[in-house]
Simulated scan of single mutants.
Amino acid sequence: MISELKELFATWMAAVAAAIDAVGAKLVRRRQIVLIEGQGNGFTARVTSTGTGASLPELSFRLVQNRPEPAVPPEWAAALRGSQLDIVMRRDHVLVRPLDFPKQAADFLDGMIRTQIDRLTPWTASDAVFGTSPPAPLANERIGLMLAATSRQKIEPLVRLAGDLRVSSVAGLVDLHEAESEGTRIRLFEAQPSGAGRTVDVPRLLRLGLGLAAAGAAASLIVSTYVGGMLDAEQHELQQHIAQRRAALRINQTGGSAETLLAKLKQTTPSSVVVLEAVSRVLPDTTYVTELRVEGDKMQVVGMTQDAPSLIRLIEQSPHFTRATFFAPTTRGQSDPGERFHIEARMTPYFGDGS
């Protein structure tokens, strides 16, 4: 009960914090500035949203030893302080390539790309920053997207520059096409530079006040339910002991013996051999199994096939399995002959007749 109350309270706090953030964003409108990277470490800054200040002419400078030359004018320094800065990086500094995945992998795209980033790019997962365009449907139940990636060393001078300019937040973007357009940009990274200048963080102050008020109410609620939770746990444990004792008495009354218990265990425990035979009957000839695991009443199978979604239906039709589902994303490498699937299913408790 206490864990459920904590989860409910955390969910409620997250919803309230999101609402406070939205209200705070309206109360404190930050200036939005775009910084476009050009040739020879050159940059051009322009104001895209003035917030509460006045508009400014474009600013051009070069980055020399991590410092702007010429120096940023005072009016621009004041405008940049506490603003939201978008840096549009040069296309030749970013690796852009198309990717496609099975349609069923739409909910796992970020994790799948992150685990394969060292194969898709020249950098390891710890050295690369990347972003993707929204997925678009393709033929044969697949989806396509554009991957943009660059080295973390490339963005460090930009984040350092944003910190020196004392912006509130900085984001790195890249244009998919030569013409500048916000609709064709991929967001590579977002950061809040250390030492960034902030005036009054209204959302944080509101969340802090709400958190202090709610903490007192939550503490009294937890204390009031603590004793009840302990009693419920003890009652549940006692009921389990009673049920186990009654089951043991019933077995003894019906002439239960070691042989009876072994026979019952045999009839109610799935056999690994029977599971393997049932899987081999269900899967088509074009499917290859590389790994089969049986844990309790759960079976997990990993392998290669031409049509992974159809395996769910085939396994569900077998009387030996129920509740078949994917427990990991379905992937397809460039050198793989098919789709690599990861399926798990619940096994029916009786495997004794072998049918």
Rank of each mutant, 00 (worst) to 15 (best):
N140M: 08
A263E: 02
H236W: 13
L138I: 03
T44V: 12
Q116N: 12
L261W: 04
R166M: 10
L99Y: 07
A214G: 15
M299E: 01
A22S: 11
V202L: 10
I343Q: 00
A219R: 01
R91P: 05
R293W: 03
L63D: 13
F101S: 08
V202M: 05
E4S: 14
I315G: 02
A106K: 09
R346G: 09
A19Y: 03
R207C: 09
H93Q: 08
R91E: 03
R281Y: 00
V72N: 09
E37K: 10
N41R: 08
R323S: 15
A77F: 13
A136L: 03
Y350T: 04
R152I: 08
F9D: 13
I113W: 02
A79Y: 14
P98A: 12
S181P: 07
A79M: 13
R245F: 14
M230F: 09
L99C: 11
Q153G: 15
M1F: 14
H177D: 12
A191W: 01
K154V: 15
T184P: 01
L261T: 04
E178D: 05
L158E: 02
E316H: 12
T268R: 01
S181F: 06
D100Q: 07
T305P: 00
W12Y: 07
R81W: 07
S151Y: 02
F351V: 06
L138K: 06
I155K: 01
G228M: 13
M146L: 12
F101R: 04
V202R: 01
V282P: 02
S335G: 03
A217F: 00
L176K: 08
G256Y: 04
S133T: 11
L188K: 05
E75H: 14
E178W: 14
P203A: 07
E156V: 14
H177A: 12
A78Y: 06
P319K: 02
V227P: 06
G209I: 08
L188T: 13
A213S: 08
Y288M: 08
D285T: 11
W12T: 08
V64D: 10
G333P: 06
G53E: 13
G131C: 02
E58R: 12
Q300E: 10
Q32F: 07
V96G: 06
V16W: 04
A191C: 10
L158G: 03
V72I: 15
H342A: 15
V28A: 09
V275A: 12
V47C: 13
Q253W: 05
G183D: 10
D307L: 05
E180K: 14
P134Y: 02
R31V: 00
A214W: 06
S49W: 06
T254F: 10
I222Y: 07
R29Y: 00
V279Q: 01
L188G: 11
P68R: 09
L173S: 04
R346K: 07
K26L: 15
F189Y: 11
R29A: 13
A162S: 07
A196K: 10
I251S: 15
T260A: 10
G111N: 07
S3N: 14
G296A: 06
V227T: 15
P70F: 09
L276C: 06
S272G: 11
S355W: 01
G303F: 04
N41H: 06
A214V: 07
S318D: 03
G228F: 15
A179Q: 12
A213D: 05
G42E: 14
A243Y: 11
R31N: 01
L138H: 05
K264E: 13
L56T: 08
Q244D: 12
S3T: 15
R332K: 09
H177L: 15
T286H: 08
